[in-house]
């Protein structure tokens, strides 16, 4: 982007400041929209792929009771569609779990101060969420 701007300024000079500004804006918007639509198309493909290849839970299939991880995939698909509230209702521990994995990789690379303790507390939070969600779904 900066290269194009420099080239434009060299070409037109500082006299035509407004026109360079407009050109810059249009270039930025068109490039951004191009990437955005590309991203949406790719996300559609990914979501349809995930929806077509859902794994069935063996304990739900064989015994009729749901396991601790049931609802994780459905909730992940809802999250990818942008339906955050529905995904939290479906499986509330998904977003903290994802955040914990991201934080774990970051901690392993950069060695945050107090990172281990933070991860430990996040782990407790996740366990409480998963078990509470399971009990509410199963027994109440």
């Amino acid at each position: 982007m900066m290269v194009i701007w420099k080239w434009l300024e060299n070409r037109w000079g500082n006299i035509n400041k407004i026109s360079t500004f407009i050109l810059k804006k249009t270039a930025f918007v068109s490039l951004g929209s191009f990437f955005y639509f590309n991203y949406i198309l790719k996300m559609n493909d990914i979501i349809t792929f995930f929806e077509s290849s859902l794994l069935t839970c063996p304990s739900k299939k064989l015994m009729g009771i749901e396991c601790l991880g049931c609802g994780l995939q459905r909730s992940f698909i809802l999250l990818m569609k942008g339906n955050i509230l529905e995904s939290i209702k479906m499986y509330p521990a998904l977003i903290p779990l994802l955040f914990m994995m991201v934080y774990l990789t970051g901690h392993l690379y950069f060695n945050f101060k107090n990172g281990a303790r933070f991860l430990k507390y996040f782990y407790f939070l996740n366990i409480i969420l998963i078990v509470a969600n399971y009990i509410i779904k199963q027994f109440l």
Binding site: C57, L72, Y123
Partner: peptide, 11 residues
Amino acid sequence: GIISIVTCFCY
């Protein structure tokens, strides 16, 4: 340790 809770599903 963290993976052990993430994969505690499925028995």
